[in-house]
Nucleic acid binder design. Structure first.
Lengths: 216, 216
DNA sequence: AAATGTGAAAGTCTTCACAGCA
DNA sequence: TGCTGTGAAGACTTTCACATTT
């Protein structure tokens, strides 16, 4: 039942999942593709097609059972278990991430931070112990860390990626504003604030609501 | 010359731009589509096609002039000027963003932060003055803020988006883990750490592992 | 020789529209 | 009736391969 599913479908499914959790809290029991579409910015056909990639779990004439669909999506995403995470680089962004309570609530256990600063090593930041970078391999192995978050300065990011990969993580989330490479068997995603802002500027400049554009 | 260009093309172009800046610092004068492809994880044909959307600015047989291509991309993205930005919600993530020096270096002037906390109002965080939320409209107007960054708790995000839009920003970057809506003439992008982590889990859980982006 | 720029082909994703079910 | 599930059509994106230029 697992097939290659597109980047954009994965993102939409994540958004639906977030919406479903809200709906559940609001006490909704059923939701239609139309409602999910309205709240997520997709079309209703898109929503149905996205779900149909994994089977049919709606009820014709009613919609989808919020609770059941949540569980199905969590299964598909591998979120019905906890994930062990570490953070490399406990600077401003790193520390902010450690203080982001939602991580734990959403199933991610941040078990260690790593840094080179003597002041930080041995301390706890928002409850997470900070270790010397040298300890990375040992701790990733012993704590069976599966995901590494990189929040180092850009010049240290590739080394962090290399060491995390070699130590055995399966996935890397990179916050440093550089492209890093990882072995083919490690999954990678990058989040870059400046890059997003620049993409936003493109929208403001082009779609910039004042340029005449090439015809249809 | 402006046409609708896809989400994914915009992202790739942003990545090329970031690479070009690195190449310029490394003193490279020419770069081939093959090299940009290797460092960005795209294919060389993809790189050439992406650039050809805006005209032809390479030199056959040599490649692209790094400096010239940088300037062209910056023009396309509207980055040859400074942008005025404000931040709503000076919590952990918000404060970390204010301390992120790259913003200013990359042409974004964060002119104000807004918060509801009495302690923060009137203070400066990393040099940026923090105002009461009530002041938002006044300051966005007088300082001609063009982009608003939302870093509030999720339940306050929609109000922030509404007020920013009404006050006249052209773009919103949302860090709150919730979908917000904005008027059609406002551009919107959302960054959500948990959502990215969940997408990463999908990759780790589904069999077809290999989302490895090549590159610098 | 080396690398761009680009039509055309191949591939992917989205939308449409409606059959089918509760 | 209302809404899902889905083939088929349409739109868009990527890849291919080669003529063209330096």
């Amino acid at each position: 039942m697992r097939q290659k599913i597109s980047e954009s479908a994965v993102r939409r499914l994540s958004v639906y999942l977030r919406l479903l959790r809200t709906l559940e809290q609001e006490g909704e029991e059923l939701v239609s593709s139309r409602e999910l579409a309205r709240r997520s910015g997709a079309t209703s056909a898109q929503v149905r097609k996205d779900f149909s990639l994994f089977g049919s779990f709606g009820k014709r004439g009613q919609g989808y059972d919020v609770r059941e669909l949540t569980v199905r999506l969590e299964e598909i995403f591998g979120l019905r278990r906890r994930w062990s995470v570490c953070l490399v680089g406990v600077g401003k962004i790193g520390a902010a991430l450690l203080g982001y309570g939602d991580l734990s609530e959403r199933g991610f256990d941040v078990v260690a931070g790593f840094d080179v600063s003597e002041e930080k090593i041995g301390s706890r930041v928002h409850g997470v112990p900070v270790f010397a970078l040298e300890e990375l391999e040992r701790i990733v192995r012993t704590r069976q860390v599966e995901i590494g978050i990189i929040a180092t300065p850009p010049e240290a990011a590739q080394e962090a990626a290399d060491r995390l990969s070699a130590a055995g993580v399966s996935g890397v989330l990179n916050f440093a504003p550089v492209e890093v490479t990882v072995p083919r068997d490690v999954a990678l995603r990058t989040m870059d604030v400046v890059l997003e802002l620049e993409a936003l500027c493109y929208l403001l400049t082009s779609d910039g609501r004042s340029e005449s554009k090439a015809s249809a």
